[in-house]
Design a protein around this nucleic acid. Sequence first.
DNA 1: AAGCAGGGGACGT
DNA 2: ACGTCCCCTGCT
Length: 274
Amino acid sequence: MIKKKISCFDLFKITNSGQCFRMYQLDEKTFETVAFGKHLIIENTNDDVFKFYCSETEFNNTWYEYFDLSRDYDEIINSIPKSDIFLQKAAFLGRGIRILKQEPWETLISFIISQRKSIPAIRTSIERLCNNFGNIIENNKYAFPDALILSQQSEETLQTCALGYRTNYILKTSNMVADNLIDLNKLSNLNNDALLEKLMEFPGVGPKVANCVLLFAYHRIEAFPIDVWISRILEKEYNNNFDLNYYKNTAGIIQQYMFYYAQNSPEYKIKKTK
DNA sequence: AAGCAGGGGACGT
DNA sequence: ACGTCCCCTGCT
């Protein structure tokens, strides 16, 4: 176990930020996640003190980068202009969210699944995928299955993970990666535009999913995925006149604050037509 | 308690 | 620019 003092690190908000789907809250102060084939438990003992239940080597080699701990998020929040009242508000609410650096393969499949699904439904699908096809790590904890294993499954077998019409996307994408038509780990040296274009070669990957993979796996902080929640914000708060150029270097982080605000504010709950 | 609407889109037409 | 793809979840 190692103990760290970290500011701007809110595990509850990260768990519910919609960028990862395998992080769970165990009790008031304890969270767990599985990533990179490792199971991690973190305890938020008080204020900004955290206990990571892993070796120091594992912390340094895996989790430090995974949780983006080298970045100063307060500096980013402070750089938001006072005139942007909405973002001030959203950043205050979302303070503590960090942009995770997740595995490209897992992120790609997760966000293909995400289309037209609610977050709990996405979690269910991914959990079944891991339990059914992933390597066991320890009791009841399974790694995210690799492309080869998934490519060997039949449509019927994959359907047990409640993937719906996305089954075919995932099967084809798995085949492309298993056959090494696109090597996800070698895409890191592409610039944002080229990377986006490359990812969109996978079936079921359009601009939104590709931008999520850019941001949450390749850690391109400039990526700005626009989903239904963000477009509601851009319409309601900015009258569709949001100047993204102004926030170009931190667009992805700004996007997370917007998303979190939309998810947690009553005025953005889905309206029911009576 | 069953039935219905809607959900972090992409794709073919 | 539109309808359609599928199924889980949360509402009534």
